[in-house]
């Protein structure tokens, strides 16, 4: 991908190597109670600040979360002040998470 072209987030995440990509399923290291996001959160800030687009907001404004693309940056650990995010480091054997080639 030439550096001069604007890249989409999915193209960028395509450049990330993840752990345990061969496993059929991985144990989630972040659990989000999206009921909180959708019912009571006044700002839904994670949907803007997450650099891996793990928090998305659909046409109706509903927040969805997936941990598979997470690059363990930690942003949502601070950005969510509503108590909806339970954040742990991924398990090396059964979890997902990154394996930087350059870092």
């Amino acid at each position: 991908m030439p550096a001069s072209q604007p890249l989409s987030i999915s193209e960028r995440l395509g450049k990330v190597s993840y752990r345990n990509q061969g496993r059929a399923s991985a144990r989630a290291h972040i659990v989000v109670d999206t009921n909180v996001c959708n019912k009571t959160c006044p700002h839904k800030r994670t949907t803007y600040v997450c650099p891996a687009n793990c928090y998305t907001s659909d046409e109706s404004g509903e927040v969805h979360f997936q941990f598979e693309d997470c690059i363990e940056c930690g942003t949502c650990l601070y950005a969510c002040d509503q108590g909806a995010v339970t954040w742990k480091y991924p398990d090396p054997e059964e979890g997902r998470g990154v394996n930087w080639a350059l870092g």
């Binding site: 990330v16 690059i71 080639a101």
Partner: peptide, 11 residues
């Protein structure tokens, strides 16, 4: 002329 090798992010 460069080629993107890796995208990363961190707090």
């Amino acid at each position: 002329g460069g080629e993107v090798l890796e995208y990363s992010a961190h707090v």
